[in-house]
C-alpha cells in the first residue's frame, strides 16, 4: 500500500521537513552543533520532523538567510549578532568590546534570564523565533601578517580589514590601525597580497576561510564575542503540532548546551590547527590587556544611544 508509514509510526503527527541554512564549514563547532540539533530533533519526534541542513553558505549568507526566513523561503537560519544590524539594533550590545569577561561569562548570561529576554524580544521585533545561541568558541582576537603585536601602539601603520560598518571601523581606528573595508570573500587575497595586514576575527571563521595560511601573528586580546543565533520562521514553527514544537524547543536547548560545552574546547583544536600552519600566538600580560581594554571601551559611546542603558548594566551584573 502507499506511503504514510512514517506518519503512522509517529502517531497522528504530520511529517515535516525543515530546511536549515548556516555558513560554517564541516568540522567546526557551529557545524557540529547544527548536526546535533538535527539528530536530537529527529530522535525526539521519531522522524516526524526531519531537518535538511545546507552548510557553508551554499544557500545563503547570514543576512540573506534572515531575509529568506522572513519571506518563508527557509525554516531555520543562522546569523551572527553583528550581521543583524540591517534588521534591528537589538543585538548591538554584543558588538560592545569587552562587554563579556570571557566566553564562559557569555554562556552564563545567555543561559539565564537575559538569554530568555532576547528570545522574547526577537519574536516581538523580528517576528522570528530565536531558538538558541551558538558560540564559535572564542572572542575575536587581533591578528596580522606583519609583526608581533603586544600593545595597541604596535598596530600603528598597519591596515586592518573591517566590514563596511562605521562602528567596526571606529573600533579598529581606536586601536591604532588603519581601517580598510574589504568584502569578506576578498579578505584572503587582500591579506595574501598585502592590501590589508590584518583583521580582528574569531579562530572559527579564520579556519573556515583558510586565513591562517596568510595570518602570521595572533594577539589573544579577546574583546568582541560575536555569537551566532539560530532563528526559525514563525509560521514554520506554528504549523507544527504541540508535541513537535516542544521537541524543537528541547532539541534547541540540548544543542545550545552541547555547543557551550564543546566550542571552547574545540577552540583549542582550531588554535592548534593555526599553530601547525605556522601562526605565532602571543598572550598579553595583565598590564597589556588593560591597555587593549581601556582603548576599546572608549568606543562604547558610539553605540549607547541605540542600546538601552540598563541592559548593559544588567549584562555586567549577570556575569558576576
Amino acid at each position: 500500500d502507499d506511503g504514510g508509514q512514517a506518519g503512522e509510526e509517529a502517531g497522528t503527527e504530520q511529517a515535516v521537513e525543515l530546511v536549515l541554512s548556516h555558513t560554517a564549514a564541516p568540522g567546526t563547532p557551529i557545524y557540529l552543533t547544527y548536526e546535533k540539533f538535527k539528530e536530537e530533533l529527529e530522535e525526539r519526534t521519531e522522524g516526524s520532523v526531519t531537518v535538511r541542513i545546507h552548510h557553508s553558505a551554499t544557500l545563503a549568507g547570514d543576512t540573506q538567510g534572515i531575509e529568506m526566513l522572513q519571506n518563508g523561503t527557509l525554516d531555520i537560519a543562522s546569523a551572527a549578532t553583528n550581521n543583524m544590524a540591517p534588521f534591528t539594533d537589538l543585538f548591538l550590545v554584543f558588538d560592545l568590546p569587552y562587554i563579556f569577561e570571557d566566553v564562559y561569562a557569555t554562556h552564563k548570561v545567555l543561559n539565564g534570564d537575559i538569554g530568555q529576554e532576547f528570545k522574547e524580544k526577537a519574536e516581538e521585533e523580528l517576528g522570528l523565533k530565536l531558538l538558541f545561541f551558538l558560540d564559535p568558541g572564542t572572542q575575536r582576537d587581533v591578528m596580522n601578517s606583519k609583526r608581533e603585536v603586544r600593545v595597541p601602539e604596535d598596530l600603528r601603520g598597519l591596515r586592518f580589514r573591517t566590514a563596511e560598518s562605521p562602528i567596526e571601523m571606529a573600533y579598529v581606528e581606536a586601536l591604532g590601525a588603519v581601517a580598510t573595508p574589504i568584502t569578506w570573500v576578498e579578505v584572503y587575497s587582500a591579506l595574501e597580497q598585502g592590501v590589508v595586514d590584518g583583521l580582528v576575527q574569531q579562530f572559527h571563521w579564520v579556519v573556515t576561510a583558510n586565513l591562517h595560511e596568510v595570518i602570521r601573528y595572533v594577539t589573544e586580546t579577546g574583546g568582541i564575542h560575536a555569537m551566532h543565533m539560530a532563528f526559525m520562521n514563525k509560521d514554520s514553527f506554528d504549523k507544527l503540532s504541540e508535541a513537535q514544537q516542544q521537541a524543537v524547543l528541547e532539541a534547541a536547548q540540548v544543542a545550545q548546551d552541547y555547543n557551550f560545552e564543546i566550542a571552547p574546547k574545540m577552540a583549542d583544536e582550531m588554535k592548534q590547527q593555526m599553530i601547525d600552519e605556522g601562526v605565532q600566538f602571543y598572550t598579553p600580560t595583565e598590564e597589556e590587556l588593560a591597555q587593549w581594554r581601556e582603548i576599546s571601551v572608549s568606543i562604547w559611546d558610539l553605540f549607547t544611544d541605540r542600546i538601552p542603558e540598563d541592559l548593559i548594566e544588567r549584562i555586567q551584573e549577570a556575569q558576576r
Partner: peptide, 18 residues
Amino acid sequence: PPSVIMILYGAQMNVSIG
C-alpha cells in the same frame, strides 16, 4: 593565479588556497 574560483573552492572545501 590569482583566481576567484580557487579562493571560493579553498574556502568551501578547506583546501590550501596558497
